[in-house]
Design a binder for these strands. Sequence first.
DNA 1: CTGAAAGCGCTAACAA
DNA 2: TTGTTAGCGCTTTCAG
Lengths: 340, 340
Amino acid sequence: MGVSLKDVASRAGVSIKTVSNVVNNYPHVTPQMRAKVQQAIDELGYRPNLTARHLRKGRTGIIALAVPEFGNPYFAELAGAVVDAAARHDYTVLVDHTAGLREKELLVSQGFRAHVIDGLILSPIHLETEDLTARTDSAPLVLLGEREYEAPYDHIAIDNVAAAREAVRHLIGLGHRRIAFLGSRTGRERQPAHLRLRGWREEHAAAGLEADDALVVVTDGYGREDGASAMAALLDRGGRPDAVFAYNDLIAVGAMRTLTERGLSVPGDVAVVGFDDIEEGRYGSTTLTTISPDKEAIARLAVDSLVERLAGGTAPEPRRQRPGYRLVVRESTTRSARSR
Amino acid sequence: MGVSLKDVASRAGVSIKTVSNVVNNYPHVTPQMRAKVQQAIDELGYRPNLTARHLRKGRTGIIALAVPEFGNPYFAELAGAVVDAAARHDYTVLVDHTAGLREKELLVSQGFRAHVIDGLILSPIHLETEDLTARTDSAPLVLLGEREYEAPYDHIAIDNVAAAREAVRHLIGLGHRRIAFLGSRTGRERQPAHLRLRGWREEHAAAGLEADDALVVVTDGYGREDGASAMAALLDRGGRPDAVFAYNDLIAVGAMRTLTERGLSVPGDVAVVGFDDIEEGRYGSTTLTTISPDKEAIARLAVDSLVERLAGGTAPEPRRQRPGYRLVVRESTTRSARSR
DNA sequence: CTGAAAGCGCTAACAA
DNA sequence: TTGTTAGCGCTTTCAG
């Protein structure tokens, strides 16, 4: 095995505690003692065993982040932001993906890495309130994303209904009247797309327009191909929309691809709005109008909340925090943004 | 603190060892004993403390993966594949990003999480051979990517020169003669883009064509904006190419955006080939021809190599493994692939 | 098949 | 200022 404190101690002819003092930069060590110990450390190539330290201190300095998929740039970008936010608190992030599987989400939330992670940030898709209330793991948990839960955990999410309404309002304001929603899921009320779909409905109502349910398209997943096939299905069934509000940017990108293939122009024939503001949307041949959640704020709030609970002290009530967002208008809804 | 083995043992009225046996599914435990212990475990909500287990066993079952950026979908997709490959060996992956900083790469390679990770998979950009030979951390290390090192570590990378040559050959075969290379870095020979640039040169030579260095554009980074500005710079300086071979897909995407903005058509005016085969390239309004490295193979080989060294036993010579790749032809070089 | 005890490497009282 | 010692919770000989 490796070199331990004891080895260094005997090499330097001092006690184990003295070595520990040096390693941990304790103030009251004489310079010469420090030098002697440091030399032994260097000679032996000693590295502290963090596992032992963790056991002793009861904490590891590692927090976990579980997202559905790295393949979705939104989560990839978010993960980067979380890693950076955590680093500012001297925490390392263990990133995991749940592959959109409820089973995996359950596993993660139950603390499958008990005691090796100090806390968890989870962005669930399928988890239910019951799963959360049945949770036994004692590590603090912070939730991310659109799902709503009646469970005592911090939850960070932008106001999805309001954001969706703003997106739809933008389209209505441009004169569109047949606005499709791409990316609804079948099943329960609380499914992820619920809030954004509700925003779509509410804004129609507010504008005195009828929301046509025939323009709501269910998808299997949240990827580009799901958007492409949803758009194709919608066109095939006849009622061509004059605008599309997609659950997220990937679906929007897929939908635009199908429109291109069908010889329809964006935004000329069909305007498109997405959700997430992934970088990809800023570089297509038609850039994408989208709702841009403040990812840095989301990451920061999540990490700060977790760190606060980890620090103990005050254990505040579970909080619901709403970071900001904004509508970013690009070419997929307005030609004018086009440089030529 | 939490519930420990000891608590369960006293609750069940047995020894600590018996509880351990049950927890670890040791074969020789009478069913009734097992039932009794299991009941105590359930009642107390006992979870094994993995940190303690790690300390005792000298290993953690965690491997680290360090990539430059999650924002680059190539690495995000690769990370997903590595997580899955590792899971098949019962390893958890701690994903880290180096932000393309040499300092961070150094830190990671030196084992800043000593003993909490069993091994490391690193995709370096700036690390030098000296950094690697000076490495003291004893955890096994597997390298990924285009950089070449004279250091005793396993290295997984596709044949970048051959792949680049195939991409350029494709362009030459289509009749292009002014083929730009976007994404070279200034500085040392061994900089990442070196091999792909060399492929560009070699294939020109093999075809009896002159490679025009005025068509090689240096970029600061490897993102979409770097591609966009590189393309703009190239067009601004006058010598318009009839084709572009980009260091990676992101640069290609950025370049295509600039071409669109300038009113040039792809592939009509300028054909474009990328490298990485990120999903994004399959959904633009002009899909992207690219070199597609076998990411699953890369992830699998990396994890397998690491696991093999972790298992100890035979410590084979450092190996250089070359997973496969293929040229995927799409619309950015051939209209014919277009559906209309 | 089960129990007792040692010890993984470290930190933190407490002593000296 | 430095040394001694007792665990953190677990696995693992070695007995019984």
